[in-house]
Amino acid sequence: MRVFFNRELDTAATFWRIYRSDGVTLGFTSHDRDLVCGGIRHRAAPGMVPAAIRLNADLSNDSAEVEGALSHDSIRADELAAGLFDRAAIEIGIVDWQSLEWHTLYSGQLGPIESDSGSFSAELRSAKLILERDIVPRTSPTCRATFCGPQCGLSAARFTSVRELAALDVDLNRVSFAGLDSPILVDGRIRFLDGPQTGLVFGVVAMADGWLTLDRPLVEGTYPGTRTEIREGCDHTLETCATRFDNAINFRGEPHLPGNDLLARYGGGS
């Protein structure tokens, strides 16, 4: 294995890779020319640099940041606004720009991205964050299972259809589909199969007059006729689970469990 920085002058450069949720992989390097390593072309981006990386030997979260200019062809303001980089996986490492030997120093996920005046910065979240998740389910009056997920047991294909987009309103962040006006789509999701936001999942937060209001910003460039995958929603209540889906046996909630307010109630008596 290549040992870096064991000499006064070293042929080392930084690289980072971004794996977007829509399947696009981007590679960058601080070197002054493109480098190909690990089967990925890393484009020269000296204006985009990772900040200090802190690695811990314990189970606490490692920390890192990345910042740069929005002038690079692969990092554009409209794509950041479209959410194409949300929750993208990222790797940061070091590469010998002569022999192309490389080593990964940090891996994780892109956190909140901030952009301002032609530049951006992003917090990176290491894979250790998984260890901070509470693995013990907490009680709740509504179902904790993901609709059509493993604990739910229902088939996603049964409640999913593909339709063509009829209209899109970027200003009000809503879409509509011909002949589709049903309250069962609230709490559901849509996913564009074409256009600038291909592969991104949008949650449906409301529906009125045939328009579906979405939970993340829409951008220009998605046009009527775009093929869209639509999945029905579930409000995660026992009544819906039992009457609409006949799936109460898989309900993951405690709708009849007394809440904390029971301790503060006045007993009274006659």
Rank of each mutant, 00 (worst) to 15 (best):
L200N: 06
G253A: 10
G203K: 10
T240S: 12
V204G: 08
L200C: 07
F202P: 07
G203W: 05
R227D: 03
E254T: 15
D209K: 10
Y223P: 05
I249G: 14
E220T: 12
G253C: 14
T198V: 09
E229A: 07
V201N: 09
F245Y: 10
G199Q: 06
P217S: 10
D209I: 03
M207K: 10
E229Q: 15
Y223N: 13
L218D: 05
D235H: 08
E254A: 15
D235W: 04
D209V: 07
R231Q: 14
T228Q: 10
V201S: 11
T222H: 06
P196M: 01
D215N: 15
R216S: 15
G203Q: 10
A206M: 06
G253R: 11
R231M: 13
A248G: 05
T198P: 00
L212T: 04
E229M: 12
C234A: 01
E220S: 13
W211T: 08
V201G: 02
A208E: 14
F245N: 00
A206Y: 06
L193W: 07
R252E: 15
A208G: 09
V204P: 02
Q197D: 08
E220V: 13
M207R: 14
C234L: 07
V204M: 04
L238K: 00
F251H: 09
T228R: 08
F251N: 08
T226V: 09
H236E: 05
A208S: 15
L218Q: 02
G221D: 01
R216P: 06
E232M: 11
T198Q: 10
H236G: 01
G195Q: 01
T243M: 04
F251L: 11
R244Q: 02
I249E: 13
E232F: 03
R231D: 03
H236C: 07
L218A: 04
I230D: 01
F251C: 12
T240M: 03
M207W: 03
A206F: 07
E229V: 05
G210V: 14
E229D: 04
F202M: 06
E232Q: 12
R216C: 10
